[in-house]
Design a protein around this nucleic acid. Structure first.
Length: 293
DNA sequence: CGAATTTGACCCGCGC
DNA sequence: GCGCGGGTCAAATTCG
C-alpha cells in the first residue's frame, strides 16, 4: 500500500509533535523524526545536532522551513551497524572483511554462506534512514562507490528497487534506491549502516573527506530540509528506536570538514518543484509531505 | 581480463 | 501451514 504516499500528504502533521509516518513499505514502518528523537537517531548515524539549534523542520503554522545546519560533522564512534547479525548474507562475492572489532554483542563468524544454507538466525537490520530527492537520475553520486547487487520489482510500484552495496571491502553499508510510484521524479534513497572509510571523491570537485561527501548527500537533507525517513525498528528490539549500534570497522578519524564542504542546497523548499540542475549529484531534497506538481 | 551489472532463484519474515 | 513480498545470492552477461 502506498503508505509513503499517504504519509507524504500531510506535512503539517510532520511539523507537529507526532511522529511522521512515511513508510517506504509495509514492513519498514519508516517515519520521520521531527522532534528530539531525530537527534538521537541522527547521532546514531554520526550526525550531531545541537540541541538548542532551531533546526526544526516544521514551523508553527505547519509550513516547511529550511533548517539551519547544526550538524557538526563529527562522527561518533558509537554509531554503526549492529552486528551483522549472524548472517545477513554477508559473504557473497563482495567484499566484506570481518570487521576489525565487533563491538557489542555478537561477533559471529560469518562463515560461509552459500546461498542455500545458512541464515540460521534472523537477520538484524542495521540502522537505516531514508530521504527523498527530486532528481532525474536514480543513483546519486555521494562520493562513495557502490556496486549494485540486486534489483527487485516493488509491489504497487512500476519502478524497480535497486540494491547497492559499498564497494569498500570493509564497509557494509548498503543503500536502496527506488522511485516514488506517485511521482517518478522523486527518488527515495535508503541508507543502511555507516561508512567506515573515506570517500573516493566526487566526480566533480575532487577529493573530499568522507564526511563531506556523505554530508553532501545526507547532511544537507537533514540540516536544511530535514526530510529523512527513519526506518528501523528491528523486530528483535523492543526499543522503538534504533537498536544498539556497534561499530563495524574503524571509526571515523576526522571530524570536521564535513560541513564546510557541504553542498549548498536551494534554500527554499518551493524551489524543489524545479528540475534539478545538478543531476548526477544530489537532487533536490523533497519533503515527504510535499506535493510536487 | 577484471569489474560491474543483470536477473532468476532462493531464503526469510510476516500476515492470514 | 501457506502464500506473499522484500532482500540477497551468484551465475551469466556486459562493459571498460
Amino acid at each position: 500500500m502506498e503508505d509513503k504516499d499517504r504519509a507524504a500528504s500531510d506535512p503539517a502533521e510532520f511539523a507537529g509533535d507526532t511522529s511522521w509516518t512515511l513508510a517506504t513499505d509495509d514492513s519498514d514502518g519508516a517515519y520521520l523524526f521531527p522532534g528530539d528523537r531525530e537527534r538521537s537517531i541522527l547521532r546514531e548515524f554520526g550526525w550531531n545536532l545541537e540541541p538548542d539549534q532551531p533546526n526544526r523542520i516544521g514551523t508553527d503554522d505547519g509550513s516547511w522551513r529550511p533548517v539551519q545546519s547544526s550538524l557538526t560533522g563529527s562522527i561518533e564512534p558509537a554509531a554503526a551497524m549492529s552486528s551483522r547479525s549472524n548472517n545477513q548474507s554477508v559473504s557473497s562475492s563482495s567484499s566484506e572483511d570481518p570487521p576489525e572489532k565487533s563491538t557489542v554483542s555478537d561477533e559471529k563468524p560469518p562463515e560461509i554462506p552459500s546461498k542455500g544454507k545458512k541464515k540460521e538466525h534472523k537477520r538484524i537490520r542495521q540502522p537505516r534512514f531514508a530521504f527523498m530527492t527530486k532528481t532525474e537520475v536514480d543513483h546519486l553520486e555521494d562520493g562513495y562507490r557502490w556496486r549494485k547487487y540486486g534489483q527487485k520489482a516493488v509491489k504497487n510500484s512500476p519502478f524497480p528497487r535497486s540494491y547497492y552495496r559499498c564497494t569498500n571491502s570493509k564497509c557494509t553499508v548498503k543503500k536502496r534506491v527506488e522511485r516514488s510510484s506517485e511521482d517518478p521524479t522523486i527518488v527515495i534513497t535508503t541508507y543502511e549502516g555507516q561508512h567506515c572509510h573515506h570517500t573516493v571523491g566526487f566526480p566533480r570537485g575532487g577529493i573530499i573527506s568522507h564526511e563531506a561527501a556523505f554530508a553532501s548527500q545526507l547532511a544537507p537533507t537533514m540540516s536544511q530540509f530535514y526530510y529523512p525517513i527513519q526506518l528501523p525498528r528491528d523486530n528483535n528490539n523492543n526499543n522503538n528506536s534504533f537498536s544498539s549500534i556497534s561499530q563495524p570497522c574503524q571509526a571515523y578519524d576526522d571530524a570536521e570538514g564535513g560541513l564546510s564542504a557541504m553542498m549548498p542546497l536551494p534554500a527554499d523548499v518551493s524551489s524543489q518543484s524545479q528540475p534539478s540542475t545538478d543531476e548526477g549529484l544530489l537532487g533536490d531534497i523533497v519533503p515527504p509531505g510535499m506535493r510536487i506538481r
